[in-house]
Design a protein around this nucleic acid. Sequence first.
DNA 1: TTGGGTGCAAAACGTTTGCACCAAT
DNA 2: ATTGGTGCAAACGTTTTGCACCCAA
Lengths: 143, 143
Amino acid sequence: MQIDTYLRGKGLKITPARKSILEILLGQHEPLDVQSIIKELHTLDIQSDPATVFRTMNVFLEKNIVRQVQLMEGKVRYEILDQKEHHHFICRKCESISDISDCNISILEKKIEELKGVAIEHHALEFYGLCSKCLKSTKRKSV
Amino acid sequence: MQIDTYLRGKGLKITPARKSILEILLGQHEPLDVQSIIKELHTLDIQSDPATVFRTMNVFLEKNIVRQVQLMEGKVRYEILDQKEHHHFICRKCESISDISDCNISILEKKIEELKGVAIEHHALEFYGLCSKCLKSTKRKSV
DNA sequence: TTGGGTGCAAAACGTTTGCACCAAT
DNA sequence: ATTGGTGCAAACGTTTTGCACCCAA
């Protein structure tokens, strides 16, 4: 299985929990917090402890398998760290999260690096507002 | 005093704690977490409870006096919500925080709004990496 | 066999809340 | 006098840690 070789390649032991967590994150379109991961594991008939999931996420972070996402919720979400960079749009009404992949931050980063003499390694960018659906329903009501 | 009139204008009662917290935030160049605010209050010989500071910050948030900043620390920082938009650069080595004020995100926002049909109300943008000082010392060592 | 992963419980934090008291209007 | 802010303690949710046990290598 490729998940096994992938984990082995990262120098990690293969365990049912790790494999399932990785599969869940790979099949996910939005970043998940630990409780959601546990819920997803439960639907696969795998029960797991928060401590284990947190520890797994910290290992995945060190190995650059996932990255953290913070959405002003008082908790951390995790998502697969894949090649194509993207950001998130969070609707303040329906709380949906959608990907924003067409904004080229790297140009901006280069400008800042030159201007400030810093080396930017990564960034966090999230947009908050009303999604198209909620925007329409708001307009309807206000008319 | 103008702080008094400002708070009164926001419909808030004036108390020593509130005035001092506001003054501290106004005189600060980087966003502060609640513990740091309490420490600053202490240097002014004002002792205050975390609960009070958290409550004050929540009131300030509602009144649009401050905004929250999250820097992947597991806690929230607060900074005065002023007219000129800026972002933050956090050095992973010396943990210094500097303002980045010359990046025009609004152009990007308009593009996203058109493309996705959403209404962006605000955003969070932080850059992480090495500041110019730490970058230099890293280079020196590696040579 | 051995190093490392796991579950459980406890602890550590940041943050919120209930309540009695006190201060600003 | 009344409204609302404060301190203290307790509660809450997220995340970490210690320890004994168990599993993958």
